[in-house]
């Protein structure tokens, strides 16, 4: 694929490096594949189509009557996502200002700490946060809300600090030149410039959080995932399908809402 004439403007040395790179990637892939599948029981894999057919026959039709029991968990799920987003955003805003190179009070000490908080929060999936929190504060909605909040901090703060770094310097200078104080410069020079990005990021994260909060119940952090876990444990596949349908519907609607809102803002 890479031998097209377009790439010929590279020197032949660069070409060799490229080829060695691709070769290395292929070798790495083969190696990883072997390590990964060394304990795989291929009989199970070969059996998969049958299993799939079996699963399919057990999953359909969904148990529609189960829907009645899902409204309250759904309400909880929405609340986990929304309250969690609120919590995350509230904490993320100051962190973003500490992390942005043009607003941080200290590039040497404060900025690295803020950046570490961001990367730590982003590296750890909300389900893992939930796992931890359930073990610490016990199962329930609160664990879910805090898990969503903790995961959202990094996401929101990262995008927001990038927006802060992209603000137009001249607008900020003009406010500075009037003799405004630091807080006033923030309020008049920086905030108006990042506000649309801020709303967009928050709504975007809310949309993602709706998705994520549907499964937090698998580890006991509340919401519709609790029902999913219970149905899986009892192998009640028609209920599982029903839950999937509800999750899918919620996700589609929230995606639509978020797209609409972001469109209206920008």
């Amino acid at each position: 694929m890479m031998t097209t004439p377009v790439w010929q403007h590279r020197t032949s040395r660069a070409n060799i490096v490229l080829w060695v790179g691709w070769l290395f990637l292929v070798a790495l892939f083969v190696f990883c594949w072997q390590v990964m599948t060394k304990d795989t029981i291929w009989a199970f894999v070969a059996d998969a189509p049958e299993q799939a057919a079996d699963l399919g026959s057990r999953m359909f039709p969904p148990r529609w009557s189960y829907l009645d029991k899902l409204w309250v968990p759904l309400w909880d799920t929405m609340n986990i996502a929304t309250l969690g987003t609120l919590l995350g955003v509230i904490i993320a805003v100051p962190i973003a200002f500490l992390a942005a190179s043009n607003t941080t009070p200290s590039t040497l000490f404060v900025r690295p700490v803020a950046l570490f908080i961001i990367v730590a929060s982003r590296s750890i999936n909300s389900l893992i946060w939930a796992l931890l929190l359930v073990s610490i504060i016990g199962p329930g909605l609160l664990a879910g809300i805090v898990a969503i909040g903790l995961r959202s901090i990094g996401f929101v703060a990262k995008l927001l600090y990038e927006a802060i770094e992209e603000t137009e310097k001249i607008q900020i200078e003009a406010v500075t030149a009037t003799g405004a104080s630091g807080a006033q410069i923030l309020n008049y020079g920086i905030v108006p410039q990042i506000l649309p990005a801020f709303y967009g990021i928050s709504v975007f994260r809310w949309d993602i959080n709706i998705r994520e909060s549907t499964i937090l119940g698998l580890v006991g952090a509340g919401g519709i995932g609790v029902q999913l876990q219970a149905s899986l444990n009892t192998l009640a596949w028609p209920q599982v399908t029903m839950i999937f349908v509800v999750i899918l519907g919620t996700v589609v609607i929230s995606e639509w809402v978020s797209a609409k809102v972001r469109h209206a803002i920008i």
């Binding site: 990964m36 599948t37 304990d39 795989t40 029981i41 199970f44 894999v45 998969a48 299993q51 799939a52 699963l55 389900l127 998705r211 994520e212 549907t214 499964i215 698998l218 899986l232 999937f244 999750i247 899918l248 996700v251 589609v252």
Partner: peptide, 20 residues
């Protein structure tokens, strides 16, 4: 539209536990 976790549940049911 399907999340990783949900897909994983289904694939585990079909292909058995493990990294595959």
């Amino acid at each position: 539209s399907l999340q990783e976790i949900i897909i994983a549940i289904l694939f585990v049911a079909m292909f058995g536990f493990g990294p595959f």
